[in-house]
Design a protein around this nucleic acid. Structure first.
Lengths: 191, 191
DNA sequence: CAGTCTCTTGCACACTGTTCCAGATGCCCG
DNA sequence: CGGGCATCTGGAACAGTGTGCAAGAGACTG
């Protein structure tokens, strides 16, 4: 913000606002109060700015949400993949996907509501692809394995979002279930 | 509107509007235009009635939705369970649950949004419990098997709701995956 | 200095769910 | 028969929501 901008706020007065700040504030708002707390007016008030200014920077609520999801997706940085056997490593990635989603239930719910769940998990999804390939699966078999695993994980995520309390208790259940699904797709040598 | 209300359940009953009609109209509205099409004003207009009349009959939007879900749940009548082996029968019920949900994606989405998905599937869920018991599972093992199956099914449902096109193509994937999960829970003798 | 581009804003519109209050309408009881 | 009362009905209004419009102030460019 170059100018002093000491004068009272009004049309034309620079507020020194950029899209990144807007997205950051929006993310904070969502994590604090859930998807329904992300209101354009609340967000504007939080930034001490007029409502329409938000629109100038981010376009619309949907675009803002897309940006928020992308930001969160980047934060969900590369987590270490543990395990020696293919099944262990794949299960590890799957667990990371679920845990990452349930650690930030508000943003995950938001992403699901706008159909951006897959984008939220994209980095880890790529890791999953790599591990599946490393396990020896190619082509159709690899694609089917990936989708079967992702769909199974999705179930645990979605139900876990609705009831975070029992989600913890489902950890064992998840591990055993996802391993059954993975084992069903892996070649014989893995056990 | 002259009386003609022969079977009035209470005094003062004048025009022919009752909660059942409201729920039926709401259900039609949802199936036609999705959850966001279910507006109290649109519903009132559809019934040729004032907005507040709806509220008098059903209480609130949430209660109305609960009633709609219950109604749809009842429609989802008992479908025949096929298969001779326990795994076939359990997979059959699981498939029915998923198909029932995806055959009416709008209502399913609505139910999910208000957290009433489990109530929507309740009848079939009970059938699943029965089949699991028939397979020889009791207590904790039965409860875990039930939950593992339901969570897996949930994943296919939720993703299928977002993309009905590929949901059809996932039928094979679902069958194989759910069988892997079931087999992982069943005693040895089943195959 | 004038011109133009970049922001910023208040106001307004069309919606939403919901509540209040003023009425109608029909049954029961005196 | 007539009041009383419970059962319905609806118009208006309130507090929200996302979004579009046109005007304005500031900063940079010639």
């Amino acid at each position: 913000m170059p100018a002093a901008a000491a004068t009272a706020s009004g049309p034309g007065r620079r507020a020194g606002l950029d899209p990144d700040e807007v997205v950051a504030a929006a993310l904070a708002l969502v994590e604090a109060g859930g998807p329904e707390a992300l209101t354009m007016r609340k967000l504007a008030a939080e930034l001490g700015v007029g409502t329409t200014t938000i629109y100038w920077h981010v376009g619309s609520r949907e675009e803002l949400i897309a940006a928020v999801v992308r930001r969160r997706s980047e934060q969900q940085a590369a987590t270490p993949i543990r395990g020696a056997t293919p099944i262990d490593r794949i299960a590890s990635v799957a667990t990371h996907i679920m845990r990452g989603a349930l650690d930030h239930p508000q943003v995950t719910t938001l992403a699901y509501q706008v159909g951006a769940l897959s984008e939220l998990e994209q980095p880890l999804e790529e890791a999953l692809v790599a591990e599946i390939a490393a396990a020896g699966l190619r082509g159709r078999a690899a694609a089917d394995a990936l989708r079967a695993i992702l769909l199974t994980v999705a179930g645990f995520i979605v139900v876990g979002l609705e009831d975070p309390a029992t989600a913890k208790a489902d950890a064992r259940l998840f591990d055993r279930t996802i391993r059954a699904v993975i084992a069903d797709r892996l070649p014989e040598e893995a056990s």
